[in-house]
Structure formats: C-alpha cells, structure tokens
Design a protein around this nucleic acid. Structure first.
Lengths: 181, 181
DNA sequence: GCTCACATGTAATCCGTTACATGATTCT
DNA sequence: AGAATCATGTAACGGATTACATGTGAGC
C-alpha cells in the first residue's frame, strides 16, 4: 500500500479528533488548507483505502436518520503516522509551491511602469489579506487547541501569519522603490 | 483555447529570450522552479498547442545535424501575455502551496519531544539550504539580466531568498524555545 | 417553509510526472 | 573513448479537481 501525504493528513486529522470525512475536510479547510489543500472527493476514497489497509477502523455512528461514519486509528495507523513524521529527510522532499502571483511578477518587465506598480500592489494586498485571514480565522481556532496540549497547529498558523506579514512588508518596500522613479 | 499559467510561463520565457523547448526548461529550472515547477514532458506539448493557436511561430533552427526548433512570439502571443499579466485579481487566484514539511510540523504533537526537535531542526536546515541555493545559484544568474533592463527575475529571486531567511530565523527561535524545556 | 450546514459518495476530466525512446554534440 | 549535455518527443500512470447525485438536521 502506497501512502501519500494526503493519507497522513487523513490519519493525522483523525488523531486530532476528527471523526467523519466531512469533519476532516472541515478541519483541513481552516488549518492545513494553505500548505496542503484537500477536497472532499479526495477524502472519502482515501478513508476507504486506509480502512482496507487496516490503518483505520470504521464504525457506524448515525445521527438520527442521517448516516455517519466514525473513524479511529488502529495501532498500525498510529505507527504509520509516527513513522512518517520521523522519516522527514530534507532534500528528499524539496520545497515547492505553485504561485501564479509570483509567476506574473517574474515576467513583469513586459509591462509599462504603471501596470508593474498595480501588479505589485495587488500582490501586497493579497499577502495582506492572506495574513489577516490566518491571524483572524486560523490562529484563534488553533490556539484553542493549546489548552489540550496540542500546540503545533497554532505554531504553524503563526509561522504562516508572520511569513505573510514579512512578504507584505517586502512588497511594500518594493512599491515605495517603484514610486520613487 | 484554454491558456493555463504554464502556457504563460512558456510565452514569458520565450519573450525573455529562450528559443527551444529545452532552453525553456533549463531557464525555468534555475528561476521559476520554486514557485512554478515545469517538466520537459509538459513543455513540448504546450509549445505545439501554442503554435496551433497562433501565439507562437516555429522555425527550424538545426545545429549541425541536430534538429532544433526556434520559437518566437507572434503579436497575438505578446498580447495574450500582457493581458494575463494585467488580469491579476487577488482572490481569484488564492495563494496555495503544497509543503510536506509544514504538514509534518502541523502534526508534530504526536511525537516525543526529542523527535519534535529533530523535525524542527530538519525544517530549519531545509530553509537554510533552500535560501543558500537561491542566493548562490538563482540570484547571480538573474542579476546578470539586470544589465539588459530585465529586473523582475532578480527581484523575485531576492524575495525568495529573503523569505527563506526569515523562515530559517523563525524556526531557529522555535528550536531555542524547544531546547529551553 | 426555507436555507444552510451536515454527510457520503461517484464520474468525468484535467494536469502533471515518470519513464521510455532516440539521437547529436561537446568536453574530458 | 566515454560521459555529460543538448534536443525532441510519446506513453503510461497517478493524483487532484469539478461536477454530479442524494438525503437529513438545525436554525430562522
């Protein structure tokens, strides 16, 4: 069985207390979405796969007449998650993100000065809004986990918020440079 | 015809002087690779598509007995590129990167303290190496374009290098915090 | 009563990667 | 002579997204 990062996301979210596929998607949407997007159509087949492999146990957990599944980790599932967490070798998994905004900036020399400025402003606005979103929506939610001793989600959220802030400042300086001419 | 970011990467690289598919891949490898990865197997079909759509012109440009193609932008191609560069609406294209390292950090509460520290150290080392790579390989190359008035590739490279530096420092502080206990 | 959130899945499609296949030139 | 680089493609595969399809519960 071939376990991908999305498999471990699934296992990890269940370990953090998400029980249903829907709950996993919801939790991912407000936390890991920025560095590991998932869609519902991915989650359900993945849950089935993980159950077939013996890493998850599925119970029926209907809510009234609405059917619902409740998943829990098996010992094998817990072990697989821990092994993956320890197996990180930088270099094996190079950083790579896809960002259409940066791609445009890369080619911005093709634009007249005015449009260059507009593009940089748009990118700064985007960083600003992304940072605000993380600070206002993600950090408070993940901080509430800290009382339970789960602190890394909040750390990652703060790292993300601070990094967006840094990029915003960087782009603001570039904007000022462009305006000087 | 449906133009994707990779289509504009192709057009943009040709505008910056890359002539063959191989040259586009090579240029992308040392510049846009970090925020928009491409593979050769993507470039060639894309070039064919863009030529069929009239955005590129293809000439034969053999080197000895070795066949080679030389592409240039048509007016339509230039217009399409400029239109895309101006069309950036933040919100329409949300930032999203996939990072297995951050995903692991998010779930790091599952690990014993010692392994948590090792993971943070590995992530810092990765940021450090990525930053060094950009500073040493990408910035010098793109800076050499600045004499020709092409300055955004170097700006993007510096933004990347500085951001990796910021993340490295952030993780170093986290590392110190973890060691204090 | 209506709308939104909860909840689970499948099908079609798109996009990208790895691996394969081939061959010429340049450098050591 | 051999290795690395230049150069162009195709085929198979895998992984993720969008859209489709269906139905219940809770709050206004």
């Amino acid at each position: 069985m071939n376990l991908k990062p999305s498999s471990f996301l699934t296992l990890g979210m269940i370990r953090l207390g998400a029980r249903s596929g829907y709950a996993i998607k919801k939790a991912a949407h407000v936390s890991t979405q920025f560095f590991w997007p998932v869609s519902l159509a991915q989650v359900y087949p993945e849950l089935a796969r993980l159950e077939r492999s013996g890493l998850l146990r599925r119970r029926d957990d209907p809510h009234g007449a609405r059917r619902r599944a409740a998943y829990t980790l098996t010992d094998e599932g817990e072990q697989a998650l821990l092994a993956w967490l320890c197996a990180y070798a930088p270099g094996a998994t190079p950083v790579q993100f896809r960002d259409e905004g940066l791609l445009r900036l890369f080619f911005a020399d093709a634009l007249p000065a005015q449009d260059q400025l507009a593009l940089v402003q748009a990118l700064r606005a985007r960083a600003s809004r992304a940072g605000a979103h993380v600070r206002e929506q993600v950090v408070p939610l993940s901080s509430s986990l800290e009382q339970g001793g789960v602190r890394y989600p909040a750390l990652v959220a703060r790292l993300a918020a601070d990094t967006y802030g840094y990029i915003e400042d960087w782009l603001a300086k570039l904007e000022a440079d462009l305006l000087e001419r």
